[in-house]
Design a protein around this nucleic acid. Structure first.
Length: 563
RNA sequence: GCGCCGUUAGCUCAAUUGGAUAGAGCGUUGGUCUACGGAACCAAAGGCUAGGGAUUCGAGUUCCUUACGGCGCACCA
């Protein structure tokens, strides 16, 4: 039941379409005022009456029914109280029926959405700066899937460029097979860092030559490159598995090697390509942007060339309705340019391209720098969080079974949640103090809340108490606050998708957990005054646990039964 | 220099997209434990929403402007 639409449909004609009325309906700051409110100020001019008077007249003429139980005017606001028992019954029935699918919908049926996220670079270990795109993209993947979209997750591998020539040059100069096999991707990265520190003109030229050899299909160069790629993929696979992140495609930059030429030709045919300072560009001056570089003066392709080819390939292959790029805001201009070029090419779907930009990560003593060794590896963050979780469990709950599994859920959850809790556009200063804090607004708090709920529900099960269809017998106080939160979940999921903002769901989870804890402290569940009340509270507890499980699940975070 | 983004409590952040008295967590101070799990709960203190102007019945939210910070601006990705 959409209450806003319902209320709008039951109001007399106010000179505005009922969709607009519904959209204007707000939620009062204090629930004792009501559950919904219509601000009447905007009707004042039209009806030539004071907002207060309009609200009063509407209040007296509104006919309450089984859905809306009470209507009152307050100042210029018209406040509605819903029939709480009905809302409670409806919400709990839906949660009970839909379970793990509560909040899902089919609004995306028949629509495809491509999401480009994580997009690791070959031969580079995962550091904390790669977490945002991975966590955000993965959460969006789940959220859109939950709303019925067909989702294509794409890891646009960074596997193209002279940097790989440098890598091969460095390996041949200083590296050997045993060391790399032993040290894995970090050993490879060390070679690359050393090259950058010691590079001379001569070495740079050698690197360019090695890159050319990769391109021209030289066997040795390609074998080395493929080996580094394999090392990288098996390394990131382990991290993705721990974070529960998945992809449908690993088509990276190299994949588009043979798909760029047709794009260049199309640009030329359409008269968009012009020469400037020896390079081939698309002029974007009239759109207030610097030119988009398509070919270097030596004829080589560029970043934008590959992104154009990739966009066109994705459209042709997946026929997407939207294509998201979960990439830091550093690249705002780049995507603006690419999208503009697509539009100039006459691709009417250019409007469906979305750059989901997020903030940058730095360390407390400034920007990260691999070369200076100022870097925080993601594996280390994960293992330290899991270790911390394990030590807390060992201290508080030494007899717990599957301690390691639980610590994994808690620790990994904290890492993911930390990346998803704030608005994505905000910059993040990473600190272990914050990452290892499991108190307050964290996934651990939500998980702990669920463990409490599970514990009560287990007691009920042991006692053989049935509560599945218990009628709502208490619709005030903390019970109702919790219930309203649960009822808001489906709208929260839609909001998160609409704004490409998984933090909506993270916030929802903490907020709902807080409401559950207030309810839990203030109301005895198993020890309720009557059997009816006990059954209802158990039903509410079960629903709260379900919605919290679904919410964290959409963020890729699991919830242990006990912790 | 130009463009984009940010600035809200000591710190980290919210604020239903223009609505009623700007809310949480951390930290601080003081409370609640013989318990449905204290990784919790309650309370107190803490705000001219960076400054100024404009629009509006109404602005943290929209527009202009200033300051501070981040990012970007031609052959890296």
């Amino acid at each position: 039941m959409d209450y806003k639409t319902y209320i709008a449909a039951h109001l007399p004609d106010l000179g505005l379409p009922s969709e607009e009325i519904a959209a204007a309906i707000a939620v009062p700051p204090d629930s004792s005022l009501g559950d919904y409110a219509l601000p009447c100020f905007k009707f004042a001019k039209l009806l030539r009456k004071s907002p207060a008077l309009i609200a009063e007249e509407l209040a007296s003429s509104y006919e309450t029914d089984a859905v809306i139980g009470e209507v009152a005017a307050a100042g210029g606001y018209l406040n509605f109280k819903v029939n709480r028992k009905r809302l409670a019954e409806e919400t709990l029935a839906r949660v009970g029926k839909e379970g793990a699918r509560y909040g899902s919908s089919d609004m995306g049926r028949g629509k495809t959405i491509c999401i480009d996220y994580s997009s690791v670079n070959i031969a580079k270990p995962f550091h904390i700066g790669h977490l945002s795109t991975t966590a955000l993209g993965s959460a969006l993947y789940r959220i859109f899937g939950f709303l019925g979209y067909h989702v294509v997750g794409i890891n646009h591998l960074g596997d193209y460029g002279t940097q790989f020539g440098k890598l091969i040059s460095a390996y041949k100069r200083w590296g050997n097979r045993e060391e790399v096999e032993k040290g894995g991707i970090h050993a490879v990265n060390d070679l690359y860092v050393r090259f950058n520190n010691e590079a001379t003109e001569e070495m740079e030229a050698e690197a360019r030559e090695y890159f050319r050899l990769i391109e021209s299909g030289d066997r040795e160069a390609n074998e080395l490159f493929d080996w580094f790629k394999e090392l990288t993929l098996s390394y990131v696979k382990k991290i993705y598995d721990r974070l529960h992140v998945t992809f449908d495609s690993y088509a990276g930059e190299r994949f588009y090697t043979d798909k760029m030429q047709p794009v260049v030709e199309e640009l030329r045919e359409k008269g968009l390509l012009v020469e400037s300072r020896g390079a081939q560009i698309v002029d974007l001056e009239q759109y207030g942007m610097p030119p988009c570089l398509i070919l270097r003066s030596d004829g080589a392709s560029l970043y934008a060339t590959r992104d154009l080819a990739a966009a066109i390939y994705r459209k042709n292959t997946y026929d997407f309705d939207k294509c998201l790029y979960v990439v830091a805001y550093q690249q705002n201009l780049h995507f603006k340019q690419v999208f503009q070029v697509l539009e100039l090419m006459g691709k009417e779907w250019a409007k469906d391209m979305v750059h989901v930009a997020y903030g940058m990560v730095s360390l407390e003593d400034g920007a990260m720098s691999t070369r200076k060794g100022k870097v925080v590896w993601l594996e280390e963050v994960i293992s330290r969080c899991v270790e911390k979780a394990l030590s807390i469990i060992t201290e508080k709950n030494p007899d717990l079974e599957n301690k390691e599994d639980v610590a994994e859920k808690v620790g990994v959850g904290a890492v993911m949640f930390g990346a998803l809790y704030n608005n994505k556009i905000k910059d993040i200063v990473f600190s272990y103090d914050k990452a290892l804090n499991f108190d307050g607004e964290t996934s651990v708090y939500v998980q702990y809340t669920c463990a409490r709920a599970s514990s009560v529900l287990a007691k009920a099960r042991e006692a053989g108490i049935r509560y599945e269809n218990a009628p709502p017998s208490e619709v005030n106080g903390p019970e109702f606050e919790l219930l309203k939160a649960i009822a808001e979940f489906p709208a929260t999921v839609v909001l998160a998708a609409k704004n490409y903002e998984p933090s909506c769901i993270a916030r929802f989870a903490v907020d709902t957990a807080q409401k559950f804890n207030k309810f839990y402290i203030e109301s005895k569940i198993m020890g309720a005054e009557t059997e009816e009340l006990r059954a209802y509270r158990l039903r509410l507890t079960d629903a709260a646990r379900t919605v919290l499980t679904v919410a964290l699940g959409l963020l890729g975070i699991g919830i242990p039964e006990k912790m």
